[in-house]
Measured scan of single mutants.
Amino acid sequence: HNLTITQGKLFFHYNPKLCLSEIHKMEEVSGTKGRQERNDIALKTNGDQASCENELLKFSYIRTSFDKILLRWEPYWPPDFRDLLGFMLFYKEAPYQNVTEFDGQDACGSNSWTVVDIDPPLRSNDPKSQNHPGWLMRGLKPWTQYAIFVKTLVTFSDERRTYGAKSDIIYVQTDATNPSVPLDPISVSNSSSQIILKWKPPSDPNGNITHYLVFWERQAEDSELFELDYCLKGLKLPSRTWSPPFESEDSQKHNQSEYEDSAGECCSCPKTDSQILKELEESSFRKTFEDYLHNVVFVPRKTSSGTGAEDPRPSRKRRSLGDVGNVTVAVPTVAAFPNTSSTSVPTSPEEHRPFEKVVNKESLVISGLRHFTGYRIELQACNQDTPEERCSVAAYVSARTMPEAKADDIVGPVTHEIFENNVVHLMWQEPKEPNGLIVLYEVSYRRYGDEELHLCVSRKHFALERGCRLRGLSPGNYSVRIRATSLAGNGSWTEPTYFYVTDYLDVPSNIA
């Protein structure tokens, strides 16, 4: 807008934040220059609390790290170098490059900038070799853009010569660093050979998330399962459950009422301010606690030095998902009996873990797994792929695949051998790939016309006998059925096997 004052003059007093240069501009645009008398524009009460600059400061050096910015700028000295009290560095987070010096300023003089007072450097006698002032900004957020400017702080001049310097606002972004852990990993099994893994992005990506790394490792069953005799009275049979499938998407929606109208769909109840505040506090606490764990609990591995020492970490090797089922080394339970199943799973520490690289999504279907087997899954978020990966501390989750139908069934015939004193040795093959492992066998036998009897055969007993022995049988026709019990439950009964026990007292003698 054009402003013209045809008559009258300007009068400025007691404006401590208004620089004289701005008042002189007002004289020019209003056409009143030359009308004012000496005392109409006070030299001592206008701009006496402001830094009124008329020179431009330029930054000469900028260096960044993930949490620091090192700045240096060209030296500046007023005509009387004693008038320079120091520099004021202003900075704040700036997602967009549209910041002005006066953003967030209120009537009390406060604003949204963080201000650092910096002492002037030592003055050199040689004007050509003056030290460049600077400042190291610490405690910054990774991968965050900051708006920065600097200006001088000078003393009051009796001659009211307006001098000083100020830089333009520059924008500097800190470097990326390792992201925080992925949030809320959930693993479920939808079949006997697959596990579905879902997660949420890290709360602090500290860069642009480029991919996720998912490692999985087959877990050995508890050692007590191999040692305890679950045929003993009072000892509860062990059981394991597989990871249940995901709930429906509708039930997972946030901010939804727990109660549904019987007449149909209901609208979600909005969260109160107290609920939102509580969630923010919980989120802040979780982030602080995660940072504490990362800094205190997890110790970084030592990389190899120039002395030739090897990095103890196993090298990563990509495998196809079809090879995942046989990740671990199978060892027989008892070496003397080769027909026992290889369900003991000690994992070799030198073995390469299978892994998958996930790009542009937060889910993965891990296939080719062994049925009813526990897996430990390790999830890392990465925001750099080359020249070397920059990934987060791992988040861990466990899951067990679903049982395989008929995996616990005894394959092959049940054979028998009759000894003296009416002892019958029953023999059968253990299931080759049971659900988890076989903890015991149930032997059901009966003599024709009598009630059915049951015998429990422990895992250890089966390994020693290759089956079991029935003792003290009365003469007669017998039928026997056997079924295995694994961590997933009972298998199917075998087809009945028949044998006849004679009275050993009636056996004919070869003595003449």
Rank of each mutant, 00 (worst) to 15 (best):
S474T: 10
T272K: 03
P332D: 08
T415K: 15
A488P: 02
S486R: 02
N295S: 12
C468D: 01
E249W: 08
T347E: 11
M427A: 13
T307H: 12
E265F: 11
G412M: 13
E221K: 14
M402W: 11
P387F: 11
E282M: 07
E404Q: 14
Y441S: 01
G412N: 14
T373K: 06
P238H: 03
K271E: 06
Y259N: 09
I377H: 02
V214S: 03
S262F: 15
L213V: 13
V443N: 00
D204W: 14
A407H: 09
A381I: 04
T497Q: 14
R466D: 13
F226Q: 05
N383P: 03
A220G: 14
E290K: 07
G449V: 00
G234Q: 09
K236F: 03
C267P: 07
C468R: 02
V443T: 03
K271T: 09
D503Y: 08
I377T: 02
I366R: 02
D450K: 11
S305N: 12
P245F: 15
L232A: 10
N421A: 08
L235G: 07
Y500T: 08
S458R: 07
E388K: 08
R481M: 10
K317E: 04
Q384R: 05
E249K: 14
E351M: 13
N435I: 00
W216N: 13
P346K: 11
E465K: 05
F215D: 10
L455R: 08
W428F: 05
V414I: 14
E378R: 04
Y259M: 05
I482Y: 01
I209C: 09
E281V: 07
G374W: 03
T415Q: 13
R218I: 10
L235Y: 07
G449K: 07
L464T: 12
H461R: 09
G325I: 11
Y478E: 00
V397W: 05
R240N: 11
N206S: 06
G374F: 14
D323I: 13
E404S: 08
A407W: 08
V397K: 13
F419T: 15
P354H: 13
S344P: 13
L505T: 12
R459Y: 09
L235H: 11
E247L: 11
P300K: 11
C266Y: 15
T343W: 10
E362V: 13
S223T: 08
A263N: 13
E290Q: 15
S304F: 15
I418S: 09
R218E: 10
R286G: 04
N383V: 13
L235F: 11
H371V: 05
I482S: 00
S492V: 12
K432C: 11
P354D: 14
N360D: 03
V358W: 13
N383H: 12
S257W: 04
E217K: 14
E378L: 04
R400M: 07
P332V: 07
E388L: 06
Y441I: 00
R240S: 13
F215I: 12
E310N: 04
E281L: 12
P300C: 11
F337I: 07
A336F: 09
T288F: 03
V299Q: 12
A407P: 01
A399K: 13
K432W: 08
E310Y: 14
W242G: 13
L437V: 04
C391K: 02
S274I: 02
L235S: 07
K317Y: 08
N339C: 09
A263Y: 15
C391F: 01
E356L: 09
R313H: 01
E217H: 14
S239G: 03
P349S: 13
P349L: 08
A399Q: 11
D311C: 06
W493H: 00
A381M: 04
T333M: 15
A335V: 12
L237I: 05
A463E: 07
S492K: 02
K406G: 12
N421L: 09
W428Y: 02
Q380K: 11
E281N: 04
G322V: 04
N339R: 11
V214G: 02
S268K: 12
E282Y: 03
K302C: 10
E260L: 10
H416I: 07
R218F: 04
S444M: 08
S305H: 04
A407Q: 15
S283Q: 08
E247W: 08
E452H: 06
A336K: 13
R313L: 08
A335Y: 06
S458E: 09
E420P: 14
V507R: 14
P496M: 03
D273C: 06
R400W: 10
R353P: 11
G325P: 08
E247K: 08
D323H: 14
Y230L: 13
T303C: 08
L277W: 12
L225Y: 06
T307G: 12
E442F: 12
V424N: 00
P403D: 08
R286L: 07
S474G: 06
R319H: 07
V329S: 10
E350V: 13
V214M: 09
V443Q: 00
R318I: 07
V443D: 02
E356V: 13
E430V: 07
Q275E: 09
L379V: 06
S257M: 05
A394E: 06
S492T: 07
Q256N: 05
D222P: 06
T415E: 01
R301G: 03
L321N: 12
S305K: 12
G476D: 00
S398C: 13
L228N: 07
P314Q: 05
Y259W: 06
Y375Q: 01
V345N: 08
K317G: 08
N477R: 07
T502Y: 10
T272H: 12
S479A: 05
V296H: 09
P245S: 13
A220Q: 13
F226N: 11
A394G: 15
Q252T: 11
L321F: 13
S458G: 06
D273F: 13
V334L: 10
L232C: 14
A309L: 12
E389G: 06
M427V: 09
P205E: 03
K460A: 11
I209A: 08
S239P: 11
E433P: 02
A335M: 13
N326F: 10
S474K: 08
T497C: 15
R240C: 14
I438N: 03
G322Q: 05
T288Y: 15
L293G: 01
P270D: 15
E282A: 14
D204P: 03
R459V: 15
K302A: 04
S474M: 08
T241L: 05
R316L: 14
E356M: 12
S479K: 02
L280H: 15
L440P: 01
Q275C: 06
K357E: 10
P244A: 08
R481V: 09
E227M: 14
Y478H: 06
L487N: 08
Y230H: 02
S320F: 12
Q429M: 15
S398F: 04
P387K: 15
F215Y: 09
F462D: 02
L321R: 12
V358G: 09
Y292V: 09
E465F: 10
T373A: 05
V457M: 11
V297P: 07
S248W: 10
G412D: 13
S342T: 14
F285L: 10
F499P: 01
S239K: 15
V297Q: 15
A394T: 11
R483A: 04
P338E: 08
R301C: 12
H461W: 10
E362F: 09
S444G: 14
S305F: 10
K287S: 07
H211Y: 03
I366M: 10
N477L: 06
P245K: 07
R313E: 15
R316F: 15
H461N: 09
F298I: 11
L455F: 10
T288Q: 14
S243F: 09
W493T: 02
T343Y: 13
V327S: 11
S367T: 07
H371Y: 12
Y445Q: 03
E350G: 13
G306Y: 07
S492C: 09
V334G: 10
P354E: 13
Y498G: 12
K317D: 15
V334Y: 09
L225A: 06
